[in-house]
Design a protein around this nucleic acid. Structure first.
Length: 648
RNA sequence: CGCGGGGUGGAGCAGCCUGGUAGCUCGUUGGGCUCAUAACCCAAAGGUCGGAAGUUCAAAUCUUCCCCCCGCAACCA
């Protein structure tokens, strides 16, 4: 019986085009899966989409689509991307699929029957206009809606609550008893801290929107994201359905189950998910591997900063294997890493082009030149034997440390081990000087043995690359004349292949990238010169002149300006609008120092309802121009105008 | 004191839990080699490990305080 291995990505939320972060998670899973496959496991790999919720409805409306059409579209784009990246997922779960919906309805009903879920009331300040609740901190003391300024009402809404607290101790004990449940350890500590601070009951249903799975016994409610999204990991296996063979095999009786997640969704997976399983009477036998994020040089990715990069662009320009290699190699285990064009180009050039690809081509050339394309394991007594022995030993150590690292999900470390083998192999050429051995005074047996060692090392390194590189290994094995058995992990030891008959025309596996050109090229992609969807804001509807006339705009003279003591983005302005001095709070602190504003004549909307912003009253609004990047510029009135002049 | 992450040679990172020669990749400089895609190999330079105090025979590592950066949250009437 093969051991089983079940690995999952999170299900992605279709809010936009998938960027390098989701590609990282997915490639990482794919690599681990291929590795386990190579180790002889019976594997299963799941990814998918989380397609419910209010944001989907809104995004769909913006694009003039139904939610269903919207998610169908994004799901297709996502599948296309995974195909492009050669992701070998066995299944693609979508939370809108009937097979999923029926399962979570059942789980919900079960928890309800057990009284783990109860119908309760949520009460809070609600703004009817904005259809949203606001917390006391958001309201900052007043009862006015922070979004529209209208008064909020205290509203009670029905919602189902899940008694998380009931399982708190059980969860803590579980985490303690299973030290590997969450890796790396720092993440585990974070979770333990959180759980110890006490778990509140969790609201698990909504009535405010209906794009979700209805609660079976109470269809006014839809099941909120927690139970809906997290349960995908078992609904995709057919849990609770007529055919639950996969669930039986991979989950219930499975050997290893890994959820790979980013650190942003740790809490849901480390707290809510195990508790849901405990309550449902399903064994918690998964583990979490929590990875870091790709960050950009100047912070978070955003189009205006010119630092967004999409995987498909990199694959189209530099090839699939380069991309997969870079993305799983660059992030240190569990921590954040930086994506830079310089790094991308240099990593590919040094590790794949120079060290690996070039080693292959120099070795093949020599085999052809000195032995007509065929070399075999050869005995000799030359002093160089010691170097060969050292290489053999390095290879054995590398295979061992590679597997050890892979078993702990340390893909970058595993690949670093392979790099060290390749480095050691390049070194052998310098140590043995094959061109000297090839001279009449040289030693032909030693020469053959050296070349044989080069090829064996390349063969072993290539086997270790199989989980990551898709196209390259087959090419390399073909060029070396390596058959199936010798290209499998079991054959990754010196001496397994006794003889090589290599191709007479080596091709370069990885073309060299011209550093400066390609760095520029990638930067151009990042600044979105390839025309990103410009997100044209929908034009506002036509209004009657009367509507406009309701708004009172006056010229105001800024007499005083100060930073808001309790907010980073706000300035508190004292503005003379003719009839009186009024206080206006404005969100331009990032763009103007207070002192430069004093003395400016600006346009002020004077009949807005007053609002408190972070504790300061604001009686009006100054008009600003906003660039696509969100940079605000105050619109100044002609100096000839006077404070209080009406604008129309 | 809102939550979290981080500050280690020019760049990006490891080491910190379990104190005891500060390591890796890239870059720089010098040298070697010619089988190979200006690739490969060797060597060197370069760090008071953000700051201060404390614990200790010994601190990048433990404790306390401070400074700075970056996410998230809040804020743009």
């Amino acid at each position: 019986m093969k051991k089983t291995f079940y690995i999952t990505t999170p299900i992605y939320y279709p809010s936009g085009r998938l960027h390098i972060g989701s590609a990282y998670t997915t490639c990482l899973c794919d690599t681990l899966r291929r590795y386990k496959e190579m180790r002889g496991y019976d594997t299963r790999f799941l990814t998918g989409m989380d397609e419910h919720g209010l944001k989907i409805v809104e995004a769909a409306r913006k694009n003039g689509k139904t939610p269903k059409d919207h998610v169908d579209h994004i799901a297709q784009l996502t599948k296309d991307l995974w195909r492009l990246l050669s992701i070998g997922n066995d299944d693609f779960i979508r939370t809108t699929q009937p097979r999923h919906e029926s399962v979570i309805q059942e789980i919900f009903e079960q928890l309800l029957r057990q009284d783990d879920i109860y119908l309760g009331e949520y009460s809070g300040n609600y703004c009817v206009q904005c259809e949203a609740y606001f917390t006391p901190t958001q309201l900052s003391g007043s009862d006015l809606c922070p979004d529209c300024g209208r008064p909020t009402e205290i509203i009670k809404e029905e919602t189902y609550f899940f008694r998380l607290g009931k399982y708190q101790d059980r969860l803590l004990k579980f985490i303690e008893a299973n030290p590997d449940f969450i890796v790396p350890e720092t993440r585990k500590n974070e979770v333990v801290q959180f759980v110890k601070s006490g778990l509140n009951d969790l609201s698990v249903s909504r009535t405010a929107f209906d794009w979700g799975v209805k609660v079976k016994s109470d269809p006014r409610h839809v099941i909120y994201v927690w139970i809906d999204a997290l349960s995908n990991y078992i609904s995709a296996l057919g849990y609770g359905s007529a055919d639950d063979a996969l669930y039986q095999k991979y989950w219930l009786k499975g050997d290893e189950i890994i959820h790979v997640i980013g650190k942003d969704i740790l809490r849901f997976h480390a707290v809510y998910w195990p508790i849901i399983l405990m309550a449902a009477g399903i064994p918690v036998n998964f583990r979490l591997f929590v990875h870091g994020w790709y960050l950009m040089k100047d912070g978070k990715m955003s189009k205006s900063k010119g630092n967004v990069i999409y995987p498909d662009q990199l694959v189209a320009n530099y090839g699939l294997d380069s991309f997969r290699y870079y993305i799983v190699k660059d992030l240190p285990y569990g921590n954040d890493g930086l994506f830079t064009p310089e790094d991308y180009v240099s990593r590919i050039n040094t590790e794949l082009v120079n060290d690996y690809g070039n080693l292959l081509s120099r070795a093949i050339t020599m085999v052809n030149k000195y032995f007509g394309g065929t070399v075999k394991a050869t005995k000799h007594n030359h002093a160089l034997l010691a170097y060969e022995a050292e290489l053999e030993q390095t290879a054995a150590e590398v295979v061992a440390s590679y597997m050890e690292a892979m078993d702990e999900f340390k893909v970058a470390a595993a690949l670093a081990a392979v790099s060290s083998l390749i480095g050691r192999t390049n070194k052998l050429i310098d140590e043995t000087l094959p061109w000297e051995l090839a001279k009449p005074t040289g030693d032909k047996d030693a020469l053959q043995s050296v070349l044989y060692h080069l090829l064996e090392a390349i063969r072993i390194a290539t086997i270790l690359y199989v989980p990551v590189l898709i196209e390259t290994p087959a090419k390399v094995f073909a060029m070396l004349g390596v058959g199936k058995n010798a290209s499998e992990l079991a054959g990754a030891a010196f001496g397994f292949q006794r003889e090589f008959r290599v191709t007479d025309k080596p091709i370069h596996i990885f073309p060299r990238l011209d550093g400066e050109t390609e760095i520029k090229n990638i930067k151009a992609m990042m600044s979105g010169e390839s025309k990103p969807e410009a997100q044209a804001k929908p034009a506002k509807p036509l209004v009657n002149i009367d509507v406009f006339n309701q708004i009172e705009i006056k010229v105001g003279l800024i007499k005083a300006a100060a930073v808001h003591k309790n907010a980073k983005k706000l300035l508190v302005l004292g503005i003379d609008t003719g009839e009186r001095l009024r206080q206006v709070v404005s969100g331009i602190a990032e763009f103007y120092r207070p002192e430069v504003l004093v003395g400016k004549k600006v346009l002020v909307i004077t009949n807005l309802e007053p609002v408190k912003l972070r504790g300061e009253i604001s009686e009006g609004m100054i008009l600003c121009g906003e660039s696509p990047e969100g940079i605000l510029t105050v619109i100044e009135a002609d100096p000839a105008m006077n404070a209080g002049d009406e604008v129309r």
